[in-house]
Design a protein around this nucleic acid. Structure first.
Lengths: 185, 185
DNA sequence: ACCACCATGTAAACGGTTACATGATTAC
DNA sequence: GTAATCATGTAACCGTTTACATGGTGGT
């Protein structure tokens, strides 16, 4: 799924500028889709406008730079739904964190503790973000799919964080004793 | 973390060909790091050899194509550990699955059911793969870090699969009634 | 018969990240 | 004063994916 398709999706929620689209990704997608940068969003919007999938209205502002507000066209909405029908719906993970942990026996315990702390803290932050947004999962205002992704995030992030916290001490102890044994011969 | 670094890591486990390295990624990394293809592994190994981080021995085989067995050098091992010390250890997810679910209200229930079934089945497959490899997590033969990633995978994949299974019926029902309401006016 | 496994590589295409370029406002 | 927010865009770089190219062995 490329940034163009993602932008179409963001615009199904209402008109927005490139800047606002990026914020939306950070607010709603951060726990399941690595955010795209401006370097890919702005060119994507320009291309979508050329293809007639979005329209662009320039607004002059006082005390602020001008902004370009994009709106989804009917063709854009159709193209987006078709893209959703076609994509295999893969779930890809690239976890340098787990690569680091996989090679734990090669790293000093201090470094491992740091890496685990950082990840648990990040998961706590993402959990807080989901909990803050919209209050509870029973809120009928929230679209059903959005609620699904929030609940999914809560379930999986908690499982990950709890696993890290529960196994941190043991892993550190085991790595320390193994490395001490290795040094002793 | 690029493919070159990942190849160095794979070679800390013992000498291997490019083909075997890819298999190792698929066996051990599949639930936390999207596999690299041959198109990135073979060039990566060639570059590592040029840099003196690995050595390469060509073996002629009968009834099989020749193979090139790569070994980590001392410099390669140091470079790998340094890379592990430097990387921020990020945990990136790109889930088209959750993007699809986020926009559930735009999709037919049939498609949503298919997408959820596929994902739950994939998670079951990954769980089976982890459970098959090495038997139980108390196995002392398995390096501590490898055991950590296996346990992490079991915890998080189970949480994800269980969440999908538990919410599938409700989501489908809600989407159906909402879409019926929308059609009715 | 057909598919999976073993085994290596190249080249083009594609897409995303990063760095650069600019600059006022508002809140701490 | 310092950081974050608002606001857009380009260009070079980097790395991965995909398609192409080849071909014998072993199992169902």
């Amino acid at each position: 799924m490329d940034v163009k398709t993602l932008c179409l999706g963001a615009l199904t929620r209402g008109d927005a500028t490139g800047y606002e689209i990026k914020k939306h990704f950070e607010d709603a997608f951060s726990h399941f889709y690595a955010a795209a940068g401006y370097g890919s969003i702005y060119p994507a919007l320009a291309e979508l406008a050329e293809e007639g999938l979005v329209t662009c209205t320039e607004l002059e502002q006082e005390k602020r730079p001008d902004k370009k507000v994009y709106s989804l066209t009917e063709a854009g909405r159709r193209a987006f739904v078709e893209a959703l029908m076609r994509t295999p719906g893969r779930h890809k993970i690239r976890s340098e964190f787990l690569v680091l942990m996989y090679f734990a026996h090669l790293l000093p315990p201090q470094r491992l503790a740091q890496v685990m702390d950082e990840r648990a803290a990040e998961f706590d932050g993402l959990l807080a973000q989901i909990e803050a947004c919209g209050g509870d999962l029973e809120n009928a205002e929230i679209p059903v799919g959005v609620r699904f992704t929030m609940g999914y995030g809560l379930a999986v992030l908690r499982a990950g964080r709890d696993y890290i916290r529960a196994n941190q001490g043991r892993l550190l102890a085991e790595v320390s004793t193994r490395q001490a044994e290795a040094r002793a011969g």
